[in-house]
């Protein structure tokens, strides 16, 4: 994924409502009306969030005039998931390595394995 694409995806995900909308869509496609139900906001406000998500390529909307179903698009999310996973792993795996290293150092400091 290109850096610009990743930035657009990040900007779209920066809002908690939009993250909640995506979470909802993960269980299947649905209409704007249905999507708006759990949120205390107007339909136009929800539509604005959907436009941002659509622009970021995170969702697609059907052409059926009546209910225009929204569904998730996977590709940009995969890029973000990989990116987040990279950071999480960076720290977790570094710390695992540090654990081993500390053990090694402490063995060297006490070559006879005796405690005071």
């Amino acid at each position: 994924m290109s850096p610009d694409r990743l930035s657009t995806t990040f900007a779209a995900l920066a809002d908690p409502t939009r993250r909640a909308i995506l979470a909802r869509l993960a269980s299947g496609e649905t209409s704007v009306m249905k999507l708006a139900e759990p949120f205390e906001m107007s339909l136009p406000a929800v539509s604005r969030h959907l436009k941002v998500l659509e622009h970021a390529g995170l969702i697609a909307r059907g052409r059926e005039a009546q209910w225009r179903p929204c569904r998730l698009k996977a590709t940009p999310l995969k890029g973000i998931a990989d990116w987040v996973e990279h950071y999480r792993r960076f720290w977790e795996e570094s710390f695992d390595r540090l654990d081993d290293y500390l053990k090694e150092l402490q063995r060297k400091e006490k070559p006879h394995g005796r405690k005071k």
Binding site: A11, L22, A23, L77, A81, V84
Partner: peptide, 29 residues
């Protein structure tokens, strides 16, 4: 502001997987 928002999106993802969103999305993928 853009940098802060980007950091915030990343932070939320790193800590909570966006409140479980990440797990759902990965299952979906």
């Amino acid at each position: 502001e853009v940098e802060r928002k980007t950091f915030d999106a990343g932070r939320a993802g790193m800590e909570t997987g966006w409140g479980g969103t990440m797990e759902q999305l990965l299952a979906y993928l």
